[in-house]
């Protein structure tokens, strides 16, 4: 498989503060990657380093197997960071023309890109007259101008209203569907869960997970149950080895975490055989959010 980016032990200090601490990962062609982490976990700094705007304190990275130096490699990628930066007096088209000059492109398709993000009607208006959502969409159009090998997005929905968030996500999903490699940094878990196949989790600058989204919440899920006779239910659950842990929730609800696959009807049948009538039975899978919180919690205990 073709490696687009490999990062090796990348570290950044801001004074004494370690913003990014020995992060290493690889980006392969054709996948959609998410960098997940709370605010201040080092996502933007990591992206800043690979995009040539932040100098690494130590460690290294290489684009396209090191065949190109960084600024030439950047001509083949598309990236938007935090918030869109363009020349305020220039129109959308003029800003794109400038990007064309910088990236040394020949005959880019302005219309196709601007139509994709829904800005073709406003193409001649000055950038400063745009709303934040429109600015962000222009940034995406600009990043796509060179049909990039990889699209890097840093918090693309930050500060947008729900409609704007929806538009941006729809655009990203459309791009991902075309097979473009994407690296998306976000603190919004559902965003990453919806779009990404792989996820890298950062916390306090350290990488605490690198793998597929599916593998991350590989647990078998859990049941939420209730019965008239709570004590009998608790005893039954504790006896059954299919349940890793039994947690008592408010309102006499029990959370039974599975350590092997089991369907809801199997549990219901087993309970019935034990003279137990369940008044409430739901099977749930842990969301990425819970997995994420679990991971960061574990990491905190280790530290």
């Amino acid at each position: 498989m073709e490696t687009i980016l490999s990062i090796h032990q990348l570290t950044k200090f801001y004074g004494k503060n370690k913003a990014v601490d020995q992060v290493s990962f690889k980006i392969e062609k054709g996948h959609v990657y998410g960098i997940l982490g709370p605010n201040g976990s080092g996502k933007s700094t990591t992206l800043g380093m690979i995009l040539n705007v932040v100098n690494p304190s130590s460690g290294s990275f290489s684009w396209f197997n090191g065949n190109l130096n960084t600024h030439d490699a950047l001509k083949k990628i598309g990236a938007i960071i935090e918030h869109p930066n363009f020349y305020p007096n220039m129109s959308a088209i003029e800003n794109l023309e400038l990007v064309t000059k910088i990236k040394c492109l020949t005959h880019p398709n302005y219309q196709e890109k601007l139509e994709l993000v829904g800005l073709w009607d406003r193409k001649n208006d000055a950038f400063k007259t745009y709303s934040l959502g429109m600015k962000q969409r222009l940034a995406i159009a600009s990043a796509l101008l060179n049909n990039p090998e990889i699209l890097i997005l840093d918090e693309p929905t930050n500060g947008l209203d729900p409609q704007g968030i929806h538009q941006i996500r729809a655009i990203i999903q459309k791009i991902a569907a075309q097979g473009t490699t994407i690296l998306l940094a976000s603190h919004l878990l559902d965003e990453v869960e919806k779009i990404c196949s792989h996820v890298i989790i950062l916390r306090n600058g350290k990488m605490i997970y690198d793998g597929s989204v599916d593998a991350m919440n590989a647990s078998h899920g859990y049941f939420e149950v209730a019965a008239e006779n709570s004590e009998k239910l608790e005893a039954f659950a504790n006896q059954n080895e299919a349940f890793e842990t039994v947690i008592k929730l408010p309102n006499n609800l029990y959370k039974l975490i599975l350590n092997k696959p089991m369907e809801a009807d199997t549990l219901n049948e087993m309970a019935f055989k034990n003279d137990l009538v369940l008044s409430h039975l739901v099977k749930r899978k842990e969301s990425l959010e819970e997995s994420f919180l679990n991971l960061t919690k574990n990491e905190a205990q280790h530290a």
Partner: peptide, 17 residues
């Protein structure tokens, strides 16, 4: 002030250029 320097660099202009 427009942060376009940052964007120029990300777009592939080197600092020397």
């Amino acid at each position: 002030s427009n942060r376009t320097l940052k964007q120029n660099l990300i777009d592939g202009l080197s600092k020397k250029e």
